[in-house]
């Protein structure tokens, strides 16, 4: 990650210092609440046990119910207090940082890219449960984008994620009719070039395999598209080289979806940019997490040269 620009640090430092004071107060308040809750639980349990000894054997069910009730209520209030404090702080920190990035930038701690948009990208299978947080919308150069933490699980009842990371939606200035998807080439790496290609030739969600002429790109990525010509219109030699640069820099974390007007980029296994009440905001705490995500996203836009336009001399 590049060091934050001096002007950004200059803008955010006073406001984050104020938020840092708030964080410390909130942390102290939370610690007090926790201490009070623990004391109340102890007192509650003593009372329940006292009641139990008074009632004798017949009072055992009442003791058990009372114990669970006391612990449950205490845990509920502690959790709610933590979430509320963290949510407010996260929103405030994110707002300060995005305001410093530019007036086209926005942040919403509790929102994320809509599930319909995530499904439209084609990067996730159907019938998936999609949730997330930390939606950032902005403009880098002339290119508009939005991204958020996204977690995807197989279905509503399954907590294990099939995807966890950042999903990025960036404006794309090429007119497209269909969809072109680019995934890390797992099949050819696992099964070998010949068998891997045979497996991939069955296609993906109604899209056919596109075999490109760049052997390094072919080894790194598998491309599926509705239209062989359109896939090559998007994946110019220059674009392929840029995508390989991203892979070289960050590893096998990137999947791409090129659709009409938008490129979706799923970046897997990236640390979510969350605040923690117990960690300081500056210099290596929440600000660092936020800035690292923003730096990654702007670097992706620069590396793919999505800001490049053609101008007459």
């Amino acid at each position: 990650m590049q060091k934050p620009k001096v002007e950004i640090l200059h803008k955010v430092r006073p406001k984050l210092a104020e938020l840092e004071r708030q964080r410390r107060k909130m942390l102290e308040a939370r610690q007090k609440t926790e201490t009070t809750a623990i004391l109340l639980v102890i007192v509650g349990l003593v009372l329940v046990l006292f009641l139990g000894s008074y009632l004798g054997d017949e009072g055992i069910p009442a003791v058990l119910v009372g114990t669970f009730l006391v612990i449950g209520v205490a845990a509920y209030f502690l959790r709610m207090g933590r979430l509320e404090a963290k949510g407010d702080l996260q929103q405030d920190i994110g707002r300060v940082i995005t305001d410093a990035m530019g007036r086209d930038w926005n942040y919403a701690a509790k929102r994320h890219l809509s599930p319909s948009l995530v499904k439209y990208s084609g990067l996730v299978g159907k019938n998936r449960a999609i949730y997330g947080s930390n939606l950032i919308q902005g403009k880098h150069g002339d290119t508009q984008f939005s991204f958020s933490n996204i977690n995807i699980s197989s279905n509503e009842n399954d907590n294990s994620d099939v995807f966890g990371g950042i999903l990025l939606a960036i404006d794309f200035h090429k007119e497209l009719k269909g969809k072109t998807l680019v995934f890390p080439d797992l099949a050819q790496n696992l099964l070998g070039a010949w068998l891997g290609k045979r497996v991939q030739s069955f296609g993906w969600q109604g899209l056919e395999l596109v075999y490109l002429e760049d052997p390094t790109f072919e080894k790194a990525f598998a491309v599926y598209s509705k239209d062989q010509v359109e896939a090559r219109y998007i994946l110019t030699p220059n674009m392929m080289a840029n995508m390989l640069s991203l892979k070289k820099k960050y590893g096998d974390h990137f999947s791409f979806s090129f659709t009409q007007g938008t490129i979706f980029i799923a970046i897997e296994n990236v640390d979510p940019f969350e605040s923690s009440l117990s960690a300081p905001i500056l210099p290596d705490g929440t600000f660092h997490h936020f800035y690292r995500a923003i730096d990654l996203v702007t670097d992706v836009i620069d590396t793919l040269q999505l800001n490049t336009r053609i101008w007459s001399k």
Binding site: D142, T143, Q305, N307, T308, R309, I310, W311, S312, K313
Partner: peptide, 8 residues
């Protein structure tokens, strides 16, 4: 063609 390409 004789055009320039630059970042916006």
């Amino acid at each position: 063609p004789d055009y320039t390409v630059r970042d916006s």
